[in-house]
């Protein structure tokens, strides 16, 4: 029994270890004590709401979020804006709908059921406006980068002057956490770039943390439900395992053999 536990543990270590080593060798990422980590990890509601503000006011001018709908903003486990607030948010965007009965496409204010309006018509348009680089869609961005939330946070704060001797092309910036250190996005955050609705001081670190939390939620909107169910499921399994263990001992006591 003990051996099995030991070996299982070893195998898990090996499996996860391989992948950690496999992660790109880059500058050590900044680590944040995220509220959504751990067995009971939950999003910080206020941080999500501020993060949404950073996203709309800063990121959304270039980065789409095409798999997220406005209604998600009011759903449980998310920023949990009120329905009225989200309706107002949605209504501030215009979407193309149609064709109507005359066969014409028309513009209307967005509704709860609409996906986030994209900043560009298509990838080509996005590239044309960004010097050939495509600002990646942010719906699952946190999951699409090794290092996850810590990587995004680090990247946002990782801008610095290039080391001596490194010459950058036009429209390319130096970021110590970026793969290859060259990034097409100019430094997006600076102190007091926005005025937080809730009055929080908008430092670079604060904004980076808030927007990363928001992006984590966008990538894993059911994270809270998952953690909650996981705890219950594992607790249930452990209790059941203990009960079955004693039943097994009882059954096997009829024949004198080790089990």
């Amino acid at each position: 029994m003990k051996n099995i536990l030991k070996i299982t543990y070893l195998i898990i270590l090996l499996l996860t270890g391989t992948y950690q080593v496999n992660a790109e060798e880059k500058a050590q990422l900044l680590k944040v004590d995220w509220s959504f980590k751990g067995l009971f990890g939950k999003f910080d509601r206020a941080s999500l709401q501020r993060g949404y503000q950073v996203y709309t006011e800063v990121c959304a001018s270039c980065h789409s979020m095409k798999y997220v709908s406005y209604r998600n903003l009011a759903e449980k486990g998310g920023p949990e804006f009120s329905i009225e607030q989200v309706k107002a948010i949605a209504a501030s965007f215009e979407v193309t709908d149609g064709p109507n009965s005359d066969g014409e496409m028309f513009e209307r204010p967005a509704k709860l059921s609409d996906k986030f309006v994209m900043p560009y018509e298509n990838v080509k348009a996005a590239q044309a406006s960004n010097g050939g680089a495509y600002p990646p869609d942010m719906s699952v961005l946190v999951k699409a980068r090794s290092g996850g939330a810590n990587y995004i946070y680090s990247l946002l704060l990782g801008y610095e002057d290039p080391p001596n001797g490194v010459i950058l092309d036009d429209g390319v910036y130096y970021n110590k956490y970026m793969y290859g250190n060259n990034i097409r996005m100019s430094k997006p955050l600076s102190n007091d770039l926005i005025d937080y609705v809730d009055g929080t001081a908008a430092t670079e670190e604060q904004m980076a943390k808030d927007v990363t939390t928001f992006l984590m939620w966008a990538a894993e909107p059911h994270l809270e439900a998952r953690h909650k169910m996981g705890f219950k499921a594992i607790l249930y399994l452990i209790i059941l395992t203990i009960l079955v263990y004693f039943s097994m001992k009882k059954v096997w006591s009829r024949i004198e053999s080790e089990v």
Binding site: L15, G148, I234, L237, L240
Partner: peptide
């Protein structure tokens, strides 16, 4: 049956841990 059941339960605890707490650790971010 009961011995297999017991071992299976132990296995599902490990399984559940991956599913609920590190569902993407065995996959590739790309």
């Amino acid at each position: 049956v009961i011995k297999d059941g017991f071992a299976l339960l132990m296995f599902t605890i490990v399984f559940a841990f991956f599913v609920f707490y590190s569902p993407n650790i065995l996959g590739h971010a790309d």
